[in-house]
Design a binder for these strands. Structure first.
Lengths: 198, 198
DNA sequence: CCTTCGTAGGTAACTAGTTAGATACCGTAG
DNA sequence: CTACGGTATCTAACTAGTTACCTACGAAGG
């Protein structure tokens, strides 16, 4: 997997600086978005010179894109999709996102500020839909609605709390505790996928 | 209902200017958010002088807040909540939001850029939760999960498509057509509220 | 009536402070 | 001794908010 890592000390330092810039960029972008982010703050947080952002990434926008790509990839790697266990998938995804509230913020900014769609993301969604459709065809999954809809609504349920207005969280109070939310999410997804009695 | 409308020509003109600024603000804010919005653009779109934003609203931020308040109020007025017909409520809300895609964008920006919670919004949510709890107590609504969760997940299903990544919409293709989505949403909410067979 | 004049509504131009990105230069590993 | 990684500093373009000024509506006195 790893390439021959014949790195000089200088190269290693350079990579480390890039990583610090990416981490600082994540921090800044999740907090302020692309338009609100300040290049100087990113450099300061990274303990690096502003100039290096332009050397390594081109400009602010491309740094943003790189931050997104990395975080999407990490999420896809860590939370495996399983059309035959959508309840479990939903639960794992919820846990992943709730452990990283800043990640949801970052993705929200991206949806608002960068409209273009990456090929990788398209492929990822298409795969999921195909797997769901296959499970439906095989009779292992309820087929009351198109596969894309199943995916959309499962993701809608997962995101329900993270996109909910802060006001709703405040109203939820102790009912908003994580394991209670997780139980309800499991039940909600289960119901979504089960034909109720007529 | 209407106050004595003894308005001079000047006053009427002033009101009209304020309305134009609010409309232009909506347009600018839904597109660029608070940080990305440009006061000069808002004034230009409104065909008004920049100065008037400061005269009438104080500053950019307070204009933003005013735009939010108005649009939240309009939505709450137009889409009545009914704990005994959550399927219908979900459908009406989805239609309202899908007729106004910019509105969802505006609300997303607000959730990201303005963390404070208005009292009016809290009251609105509390009322809804109370109504749901009452329907549960009266046996008219499934009580498998706390009332707040019911509300959160219904709203999650409604928002599923509007918050979905553009990539998912692209994958959906013709399956993403409105009336098909509406049918699926009705079914999804119905299932959420119906205990499935064991 | 009609003329005066205060003032609400509006405008143009400016300012102080940021901001993304560029230039020119330095130090040290290799 | 040179090229790569890094730094300090500059700058041109913007941007939110201000200052100073204008215009004409409409009320009030004659």
């Amino acid at each position: 997997m790893d390439e021959a890592p014949a790195l000089t000390a200088k190269q290693r330092q350079s990579r480390a600086t890039q990583e610090r810039l990416l981490a600082a960029g994540f921090d800044e972008f999740q907090g302020h978005g692309l338009a609100g982010a300040r290049v100087d703050r990113i450099a300061a947080k990274a303990g690096a010179n502003k100039r290096l952002i332009y050397v390594y990434f081109g400009d602010k926008e491309r740094l943003f894109d790189e931050v997104i790509v990395r975080n999407v990839a990490a999420m896809l790697d860590t939370v495996p999709f399983d059309a035959d266990d959508l309840v479990g998938y939903a639960e794992r995804l919820m846990d992943y996102l709730e452990d990283r509230p800043e990640l949801t913020r970052l993705f929200s900014w991206r949806n608002l500020e960068r409209t273009d769609v990456s090929e990788a993301e398209l492929v990822s969604y298409r795969n999921k839909v195909t797997q769901i459709a296959r499970a439906q065809d095989g009779g292992r999954l309820d087929a009351a609605m198109p596969a894309v809809h199943v995916l959309a609504y499962v993701l809608g349920l997962v995101g329900a709390w993270t996109i909910a207005s802060p006001a709703l969280h405040q109203v939820a109070g102790p009912d908003g505790l994580r394991d209670l939310r997780r139980r309800s999410l499991r039940e909600a997804v289960r119901r979504l996928l089960t034909a109720p009695p007529p």
